[in-house]
């Protein structure tokens, strides 16, 4: 079984910016192990000579004319904000205390 440790899950959760409770870490480690086992078969069929596909329908250099047009107003853009001030998003502090 593709073991994935509790510590690894905690690290991934930190990277993904999700606080996980201790019991969630255990459950998630177990479940991810089972899922990774099941998906590991891709490594057997994906041989060197097979090119990768990132997009189902090949498209290149998609552009549209660069024409100015009205966007959202400040009020519309801020309409769903958890907090706003002076027509701006109000956010918690971004620096650690020093």
């Amino acid at each position: 079984m593709s073991a994935i440790s509790r510590e690894e899950v905690a690290h991934l959760a930190m990277l993904a910016r999700i606080d996980l409770a201790p019991e969630e870490l255990d459950l998630m480690a177990d479940q991810l192990g089972v899922i990774l086992d099941a998906v590991a078969q891709v490594q057997k069929v994906a041989t060197e000579d097979v090119p990768a596909t990132s997009h189902p329908i090949p498209l290149t250099n998609v552009t549209r004319p660069d024409v100015p047009r009205p966007g959202l107003t400040a009020e519309e853009a801020l309409s769903g904000a958890p907090a706003a001030e002076d027509q701006r998003f109000r956010v918690p502090r971004i620096l650690e205390e020093d």
Binding site: V39, V42, Q43, A46, P51, A52
Partner: peptide, 15 residues
């Protein structure tokens, strides 16, 4: 490479 890269190759095989 082992996971995401291989999966994208499988995508080619399915096509």
């Amino acid at each position: 490479d082992a996971y995401y890269g291989s999966a994208q190759k499988v995508r080619t095989l399915i096509q």
